[in-house]
């Protein structure tokens, strides 16, 4: 299991969103993508998921060019959890989760298989959402909704799990819980998980590999100790940070804005 991102460039209406992005990840690795707003985190994930087409560069999973994989096949390889989904037409949690099994169903079979429902049951139990299955999506709390979104991606049983801000709107307990879960699934199933995250502190708690983006360019990518360096983070974010060594982890704590706390 290996993901290679090689010189990917993405433009939105001729404005560069991602330039020459390259990095690699192995099965079982928790990758965190960090960087300020508009740095290209979401674009990077969307490019890997083939939602946006890169102008240049290529993405390979185990040597297969992702863009040339048939769309349905791709659904078994990659799942992207976006911060939200459309909920304007009311539907239940189970109805939503069932759609995640479509890449595995035959073209003209309309009812879910026994295995589809079993997978849903197992994941639902793991994420503690079994009691929510019959509820409507628009009646869930943010924490419940976020767990349902992640459950969907896991039910899709992807080889590469992409998460875009999975911890936004969550309280501290659920933030840790979500990240623990991502790490657990990544290790257990030897998949690759790539999480775009604002919270540098949270990233430093869980990541095996960190990708630091700034203005569409990967400034640094590698082991946490190579990326979580004070001068690097301060340069990119304009925030003074302190790095604590707790256990074998380097934890990043934002302290104050640079230039003496005056907002720029």
């Amino acid at each position: 299991m290996k993901l290679v991102i090689d010189g990917v460039e993405v433009y939105y209406n001729s404005i560069p969103a991602l330039r020459g992005a390259s990095f690699e990840a192995q099965g079982g690795e928790v990758v965190a993508v960090i960087g300020p707003n508009g740095a290209g985190k979401t674009t990077l994930l969307r490019a890997i998921a083939s939602i946006v087409k890169p102008l240049r560069g290529a993405i390979y999973i185990d040597g297969r060019l992702v863009n040339s994989v048939p769309p349905k096949e791709r659904g078994k390889l990659i799942a992207l959890v976006e911060p939200s989904i459309s909920r304007s037409i009311p539907s239940s949690v189970l109805e939503f989760l069932l759609t995640a099994r479509y890449p595995y169903s035959k073209l003209y079979s309309f009812t879910p298989s026994k295995r589809d429902l079993e997978v849903i049951d197992i994941i639902a139990k793991k994420l503690n959402i079994t009691h929510l299955l019959n509820r409507r999506l628009d009646e869930l709390s943010s924490g419940e909704f976020q767990r349902v979104l992640i459950a969907r991606a896991l039910i899709q049983e992807p080889r590469v799990l992409l998460l875009d801000e999975p911890t936004a709107f969550l309280d501290i307990k659920y933030r840790l819980e979500v990240m623990e879960l991502v790490r657990y699934v990544t290790k257990e199933q030897r998949i690759i998980s790539i999480t775009a995250i604002h919270d540098v502190y949270l990233a430093s708690l869980y990541a095996d590999k960190v990708v630091l983006l700034s203005n569409g360019v990967i400034v640094a990518a590698g082991k946490p100790e190579d990326v979580f360096r004070e001068e690097l983070i301060e340069n990119v974010y304009g925030v003074k940070v302190q790095i604590l060594n707790i256990g074998d982890r380097r934890i990043v704590i934002p302290i104050q804005l640079l230039n003496n706390g005056q907002p720029t």
């Binding site: 969307r46 939602i51 769309p71 659904g75 990659i78 989904i85 459309s86 037409i89 759609t99």
Partner: peptide, 11 residues
């Protein structure tokens, strides 16, 4: 129902 990029992900 759940969004354009969601449908796209499922092929």
């Amino acid at each position: 129902l759940y969004g354009d990029s969601y449908a796209k992900q499922l092929g």
